[in-house]
Amino acid sequence: MIRYGKLVHMEVRRFRYFLLGMMGLTLVVQVAALIWKTTGEVHRLRAGGAPVPFFGFDKLTFTWAVFNTQAMFALPILVSAAGLALYVFLIWYRDWLGRGTFAYRLLMLPTARRNLYLAKLTAILLFVFSLLAFQLLALPIEQGIFNLIVPAEMRMDSYFTDIIQANQAFSLLLPLSGAQFLYQYGLGVICILVAFTAVLLERSFRFWGIGYAVIYATACIAAFVVPLLTLGFDRDDAYLYPKEIFGILTAVIMVVAAASIGLGFRLLSRKITV
């Protein structure tokens, strides 16, 4: 357990500059877009321009600012997401690349091999959630900057939930419903499990490994998507009731998760080769 913690720390430490970089990029790009948009509008209004009603509000709000900087606010988020998605694979391959194959060192550690798997999984999740948390904290900071730029008589307060809903990326990544958050990120975790196991398949079977990995990933995706598309949960004349289809989908997800973890652990402890 302690060794698992140390491994997590090692993974976090290896990635810390990238993580800070993503956070920094997000803050810088968002603040720049915010300042540019808001000062532009304030100048326009001061010069005698008519206020453009925003969902029925006349005064400027931080919600308005977030709504009107959609692309620029979302851009660093997309870059970070792409980076993290890539790192799901690189967090493994990184140990094999370069002159010093760190994989030797990790596999020789006197610790259960599954701790390596779990530590990498934990690290990725930690990165995802800390970036989300960073975005949440960035918003009140950005709102403060907004309040500095816009004089009090021209602005109005915003509901925090409105701010979140103003940007499509936010409402997608930080859904207001806690249940939706769990469903979304739960599915995300399972995707990571499948990806990890695919990587381990490739690393265990080298030549045929990439084929096995692709087959495995495809099978997992198909196991979920095929019932979703064919059972016709939205078709009137479907044979199964929605509750039954939901039950099937849930069971499939559980099986895919268990299989991925089980297979991944086995590959890592018995079949992996440097």
Binding site: R14, R99, G100, F102, M108
Partner: peptide
């Protein structure tokens, strides 16, 4: 067992 056996491979397996 790996507390009792150490291995020195043909290259240095540590991150650069």
């Amino acid at each position: 067992s790996y507390e009792r056996i150490s291995f020195v491979p043909d290259h240095l397996p540590m991150p650069s």
